[in-house]
Design a protein around this nucleic acid. Structure first.
Lengths: 228, 228
DNA sequence: CGTGATATTGACACAAGTCAAAGCCAGTGG
DNA sequence: CCACTGGCTTTGACTTGTGTCAATATCACG
């Protein structure tokens, strides 16, 4: 039995995604709880909606974000397969969530201790982002993002027994800018510099290969300055 | 019976503060759990220490912070009376905590659901800081900080039935800079501008009066631009 | 083969950082 | 009581990283 997820596949501002029913059916297959394939830019829920539906990302990518009254947007987290969305204060949701690519979710119910663990993980990631936004330079931020995405979306498929990791980049330059507290142009310039420095490779704009994870993480941590 | 808190009142890098014993004695007085008065700049715990002792701030102010290898510091939160410190992943503490003024703590043990609630609150504050650091200008950040501190440290003592709020500023300009992702100089300049604009008043450097909370919160939210 | 979104690149502007010099104040000791 | 010290703050002059604006390139899609 499938949890019915009403898909509202419009782009941009759209009606809210109804929370899954709280009655979780027994799995009859491994994917029995999984919803349908959501298209890119589907709004899953919005800021201010009461209640907190909980989903696990099965495949694809979801961005959680807060938006200021004047349109400034800050992405709180990019969430890949296996991770959860919908946690937070029970009262009101403080952020919206939308898909960045074709994405499959499954509804989950969690024990209290699982929720506590998940909250702790979210807190840890949020505090990491605070450090990044408060004290890191643009190249450090972009390097960090590329490595974080590699961990979540990279297949262990190493290029030629080098430690290279290749993955599909779900977020656009604009999404990355809104995550890293930068502008589209700055993100693009950092990409170009990282490419010229031989740390990464980019194909067709959305296929990333991290060529030198070692050096890239040195950059992300602020140990090395990225020459040029 | 008092929970013994070993005070290490040195300034700067110092040994860790030992977690309170987990056996909580019955209160014999209202302040029976409260520890001694900790002097300013006492390190309560450091990053990387295992276990997570939990305290409530009774009086004073505590800053939680992460530090990069090259010394860049990011304050995660400033915590006033009634709020908790020590929550997070059980495994390791990802941040350090130190007092900013004379501070009294009390050891607490919490039910699981209290912990979940407290984690949710920390998460919410952390995400608010993410928005501030990623997308707000320096004057907006400072305005936000002054209002947040007013909520936590301001006495309801209103000036002359105007909505003015006065409070002692625990953090130095440097602490504020490390919280807001700015420099000491920028924080100081914003203070000067806010003073000239008649939104706040400063006496002796550490006594703040918010003269126009209304307009200040408009500034903090990015609705108004702060002329001059 | 247009058309529209996204990405890159360049020229320039500006907010915030850096460096440096006073200023202010609390604490100390003569 | 006063000079001295050291930390914090303020202010000014200048630099710089990142943002803004604008032109072009690239790519997906009909």
């Amino acid at each position: 039995m499938c949890v019915m997820l009403q898909i509202l596949a419009d782009r941009g501002p759209s009606p809210a995604f109804p929370p899954a029913s709280s009655s979780i059916p027994k799995p009859t297959r491994t994917t029995s709880l999984a919803g349908p394939l959501l298209p890119p830019r589907t709004m899953i829920f919005r800021e201010g909606l009461a209640g907190s539906p909980q989903y696990r990302v099965v495949d694809g990518c979801v961005a959680t974000a807060q938006t200021l009254s004047d349109g400034r947007r800050q992405i709180i987290d990019l969430i890949g397969p296996g991770r959860l969305i919908g946690l937070g204060l029970g009262e009101h949701i403080r952020y919206s969530a939308e898909t960045l690519g074709f994405t499959r979710l499954e509804a989950v119910t969690m024990s209290q201790s699982d929720r506590e663990l998940a909250l702790g993980e979210m807190l840890e990631r949020s505090q990491g982002l605070v450090m990044l936004l408060g004290r890191k330079t643009a190249p450090e931020r972009v390097a960090f993002a590329l490595l974080d995405l590699a961990r979540h979306f990279g297949r262990p498929a190493r290029d030629k027994r080098r430690r290279a990791i290749t993955y599909h980049l779900y977020p656009t330059r604009g999404d990355l800018a809104d995550w890293l507290g930068l502008t589209v142009e700055t993100v693009s310039r950092c990409f170009t510099r990282l490419k010229k420095a031989g740390l990464i490779d980019l194909e067709r704009g959305d296929l990333v290969t991290v060529l030198d994870p070692q050096q890239l993480s040195g950059l992300a941590a602020g140990d090395r300055p990225l020459s040029y």
